[in-house]
Amino acid sequence: MSLPLVFFTIMSGFIKNFFFPKLNKYFFIRLSVTVVILTVLFSFVLMPAFINGRSMEPSYSAVGFNFCTKLKYKFNPIQVGDVVVIRYVDKKFFLKRVVALENDVVEFRNGVLFVNGVYRYEPYIKNNQCDWNLPPRLVQKNHVYVVGDNRTMPMNQHQFGQVAVSRVVGGVLW
């Protein structure tokens, strides 16, 4: 028997077993274990997230897919510049960038971000046509201040502001 034929025979057997497995006890054990592992993985470790919105452009395109790393902030504190997933309501989440932490004072002057009165350099913002003006805001205890990277829209059309740390679900995988 030639080598390609042996290979083909093995592969066809493998493919057949993969798509049409024998319904024996091992199959049900494998199925149960797989379901449990995937449920735990996608519920508590890596939450699948479909991105649908322009608020984080150009860092994240308006339509895309990512995973929310739910364990990221269980071991590390949230840091300025982190992109976080925020639970908004029910199954609706926001993807935003942390620009200030608790006790910081945030303000926008003609579209430029100032934290504690100091100009904040934001390299992730491209083509800045922002004209936002927001009086100084003190970030409350156990809160972080989040803003999207896309600041081309009017301020009242952009969802941003301080949010409770308890609403931060995690970071993004990439």
Partner: peptide, 8 residues
């Protein structure tokens, strides 16, 4: 007590 989720 009611608060906005994102308070500008």
């Amino acid at each position: 007590t009611i608060q906005k989720v994102l308070e500008k």
